[in-house]
Amino acid sequence: MIMVDETSTSISERLPESVPVEFDDYANEYEEALQTGLQVSGEHPEYFARRRIEWTHALLDSRDIEINTVLDFGCGVGIAAPLLNEILNPQCIWGFDPSTAAIARARQDRPGSPNQFVDCADELPSAEFDLVYTNGVFHHIPPRERATAFATIWRTLRPGGWFAFWENNPWNPGTRLVMNRIPFDRDAITISPYEANHLLRRSGFNPVRTDAWFLFPHRLRALRPLEWLVHRIPFGAQYLVLAQKPLTLEGQ
């Protein structure tokens, strides 16, 4: 297992390089570009965002885990913030994204919001968050730089904190179809559920469970109740690996 140095802050200096500059170009058209890809599903992006956060909340609630502080890692223009506030009801939410243009828009769209949005990972507090939530971020980070991103997340989580790692599922045939329709997703390098579990373990996290959702498009929505029978099998278009940062480090 590769353990992470809790006191290291220099790891974040390279983080902005991990996300293509093209995200700055889509800061004002992000939702439109995303909807272009998701049209084939027949759903609006908010449908997927709400389902992801509701399921994350359900898993945490089933363990009687209280979430007071949340980091939305790779928050983009901040479109998940209202749902994180509504569903998780934390005391504090931070959003981080290395795209300066995206963070500028997140701040502009939510003036007076108690949420904090930053574009520099060095500004994120250490051992502060009960939950780090990330969705569709790591397939944009070059494989050689993913360990740096995991280390930043590790640093910001309190001991015993939780990491909700949502990603697009390359094992679902519809995933690449959708991604090919989204300009900033076409060349992304996807991560399989198996690889995600492996990367999390190498970074020191303890994966607790893996769930996959969004198996049926809108036109087959009558079949969606069946997802409850197979969501532990990674067939859905997106999957969640719920992982925990240990309360104590090995050797302590």
Rank of each mutant, 00 (worst) to 15 (best):
Ala81Gln: 06
Pro82Leu: 04
Leu83Phe: 12
Asn85Phe: 15
Asn85Tyr: 15
Ile87Ser: 06
Ile87Leu: 05
Ile87Phe: 08
Asn89Gly: 12
Asn89Gln: 14
Cys92Lys: 05
Cys92Pro: 07
Ile93His: 03
Ile93Thr: 06
Trp94Arg: 00
Gly95Glu: 07
Phe96Val: 10
Phe96Asp: 00
Phe96Ala: 04
Phe96Asn: 01
Asp97Thr: 00
Asp97Leu: 00
Pro98Cys: 05
Ser99Gly: 14
Thr100Asp: 09
Ala101Ile: 12
Ala101Thr: 12
Ala101Met: 12
Ala102Leu: 13
Ile103Trp: 10
Ile103Ala: 11
Ile103Lys: 11
Ala104Ser: 10
Ala104Ile: 08
Ala104Gly: 10
Ala104Leu: 10
Arg105Glu: 01
Arg105Tyr: 03
Arg105Ala: 07
Arg107Asn: 06
Gln108Trp: 07
Gln108Val: 06
Gln108Cys: 06
Asp109Thr: 01
Asp109Ser: 02
Asp109Ala: 01
Asp109Met: 01
Asp109Trp: 02
Arg110Ala: 03
Arg110Leu: 00
Pro111Asp: 10
Pro111Ala: 06
Ser113Cys: 00
Pro114Met: 04
Asn115Asp: 05
Gln116Ile: 12
Phe117Cys: 04
Val118Tyr: 01
Asp119Cys: 02
Asp119Val: 05
Ala121Tyr: 03
Asp122Leu: 08
Glu123Arg: 05
Leu124Lys: 02
Leu124Gln: 00
Leu124Gly: 03
Pro125Ile: 07
Ser126Thr: 15
Ser126Met: 14
Ala127Ile: 12
Phe129Cys: 04
Asp130Lys: 08
Asp130Arg: 01
Leu131Ala: 09
Leu131Lys: 08
Val132Cys: 11
Tyr133Ala: 14
Asn135Gln: 14
Val137Trp: 14
Val137Ile: 11
His139Gly: 04
His139Val: 13
His140Pro: 05
His140Ala: 01
Ile141Leu: 11
Pro142Lys: 10
Pro142Thr: 15
Pro142Arg: 06
Pro142Cys: 15
Pro143Val: 12
Pro143Ile: 06
Pro143Met: 12
Arg144Cys: 13
Arg144Trp: 14
Glu145Phe: 14
Glu145Gln: 15
Arg146Ala: 00
Ala147Trp: 10
Thr148Tyr: 15
Thr148Phe: 15
Ala149Asn: 00
Phe150Arg: 01
Phe150Trp: 01
Ala151Tyr: 13
Ala151Lys: 14
Thr152Tyr: 13
Thr152Asp: 04
Ile153His: 05
Ile153Gln: 13
Arg155Lys: 15
Pro159Gly: 05
Gly160Glu: 02
Gly160Arg: 01
Gly161Ala: 12
Gly161Lys: 06
Gly161Val: 08
Phe163Thr: 10
Phe163Val: 04
Phe163Ala: 04
Phe165Arg: 03
Phe165Tyr: 09
Trp166Ala: 12
Glu167Ala: 03
Asn168Met: 11
Asn169Thr: 10
Pro170Trp: 05
Pro170Glu: 03
Trp171Thr: 09
Trp171Cys: 10
Asn172Trp: 10
Pro173Phe: 11
Pro173His: 12
Thr175Cys: 09
Thr175Met: 07
Arg176Glu: 08
Arg176Lys: 09
Leu177Glu: 13
Leu177Pro: 09
Met179Lys: 07
Asn180Ser: 08
Asn180Thr: 06
Arg181His: 05
